[in-house]
């Protein structure tokens, strides 16, 4: 069933059951987002960037968690929305090593794009920058991971599938110290990392890089 939505000044028709974020993106209305993946059925809603205001709600909500089942009116550019988006971006930048020229994601990096969209720079404002040690984690046999680039969106974990349909990547640790890690022995019978680059390709910030032999 098609449902009609009012987004800012536009009317769009979307199939019931889609998420609001997808509906907007499909209609060419950009809303900042990092962790959302079209294929997965339930968004992790962890990056906290895709804020919108829905008429009748007193506070912004994340568009990826709104399932469309009735007509709604949505605003994507209100002061409250922009405030939360800038605040979230600033937090991500406060733990990000800004060295764009050295980074493979330069010019296609999601943080650069969102910063440009929100008309802010890549400095964390009044927050002090806090970086992790070490800067590069080389424990994986084929990959280098840069925790100070990583935004912990988890997309790499979601796309990682080996020959035995098991994932080689995980979140490890907790809280501020959460990192992307792999653990255990790797043998080429089960591990596909030498030929598969799914995680490297999906990483929006260049935090996973194939190690040069």
């Amino acid at each position: 069933m098609m449902i009609s939505l009012t987004i800012d000044d536009r009317q769009i028709q979307v199939a019931g059951g889609t998420s609001l974020l997808k509906a907007c993106l499909d209609s060419g209305i950009y809303i900042p987002h990092i962790c959302f993946m079209e294929e997965s059925d339930r968004s992790p809603a962890s990056c906290r960037l895709c804020w919108v205001e829905i008429e009748g709600h007193s506070w912004p909500v994340t568009a990826c968690t709104v399932t469309i089942d009735h007509p709604i009116a949505v605003k994507t550019d209100t002061p409250a929305v922009r405030h939360l988006q800038r605040s979230a971006l600033q937090l991500l930048l406060s733990v990000h090593r800004v060295e764009c020229k050295k980074c493979p994601a330069n010019r296609q990096c999601v943080l650069q794009n969102i910063a440009r969209f929100l008309e802010v720079g890549l400095k964390p404002g009044r927050l002090q920058r806090r970086l992790k040690e070490p800067d590069v984690d080389g424990s994986h046999p084929y990959l280098d991971h840069y925790p100070n680039r990583c935004v912990l969106c988890g997309k790499c974990i979601r796309v990682c599938r080996n020959h035995d349909n098991r994932t080689a990547l995980t979140f490890a640790g907790r809280g501020f110290h959460t990192v992307i890690r792999s653990f255990g022995r790797f043998d080429s019978d089960t591990v596909a990392c030498d030929s598969c680059r799914a995680c490297v390709e999906i990483c929006p910030v260049g935090a996973l890089v194939i190690r040069e032999a």
Binding site: T170, A172, G173
Partner: peptide
């Protein structure tokens, strides 16, 4: 995978 077990344990 061992990674998953490690992820949960940590």
């Amino acid at each position: 995978s061992a990674s998953e077990v490690f992820g949960v344990a940590t």
